[in-house]
Design a protein around this nucleic acid. Structure first.
Lengths: 117, 117
DNA sequence: TCGTCTGTTTAGGTTGCACTTTACACGCGA
DNA sequence: TCGCGTGTAAAGTGCAACCTAAACAGACGA
């Protein structure tokens, strides 16, 4: 499911419990202490660093970009792409702000086609 | 002019001197200490925070997004836009990676048109 | 040669992020 | 009631980002 306005911590706790994974087990897989994960899951600490969020996404079976967004982050891979063409990318993003998912998907396909050419 | 592989500090120093602005004067306009600006301009310190970079861009007459990129950053305004539609934006950016400026400009225009509709 | 520019050196400092360690309290099955 | 597994509370660590104040050195004009 999607995560409307839910906080990062609450969301991953729900998903973790749904998958019947223990907190310690998950903490170990992510590579953090159980204590820390506990606080994160209760939104007492902010979401962890990008690589940890990615691991969490893998474990609970969520899209990494989506979970990163919920964590208030953007994949560094994406900001790297923007930095290669700052002006054009900035123009595009400002123009694309507020577009529907469908419109965006269409633009992504066009970009793909432009590259294949 | 554009800033091929030049470092952030060296670049803004050149532009500042070209505009015949003193280091102290510029520091004051930006809102930092002259000491700090001196170090930044010699790339002894990393580029300052986003708002400072924006002010510098205004003073030396450069595109803010371009200068932010040179500073190794992306405008937080843009990452906000991405976070509103993480999956689609991520797909788009990965597809758009490596496209020419022309191709990007065309996509930006299409986005603009999609929004006006 | 004094005052006043220029930028620079030295030597910090604060704040916040991203975590850890240690200890604890509860429930539950054997 | 032992001990094990669950999650939690309190405190502290390490480090990088972002920045400062004070003092100084060289050039230049009065």
């Amino acid at each position: 499911m999607k995560a409307g306005r839910e906080k990062f911590g609450a969301f991953i706790r729900r998903e973790r419990e749904a998958k019947e994974i223990g907190l310690r087990e998950m903490a170990k897989k992510i590579g953090v202490s159980p204590t820390y994960l506990s606080k994160v899951e209760r939104d007492e600490f902010p979401p962890p660093a990008e690589d940890k969020v990615r691991k969490i996404a893998g474990i609970i079976g969520q899209d990494a970009d989506e979970l990163l967004a919920l964590a208030g982050r953007v994949a560094s891979e994406l900001t790297d792409i923007i930095r290669e063409r700052p002006r054009e990318m900035a123009d595009f993003l400002r123009a694309a702000k507020g577009l529907t998912a469908d419109d965006m998907a269409r633009l992504a396909r066009q970009a793909q086609r432009a590259k294949e050419k």
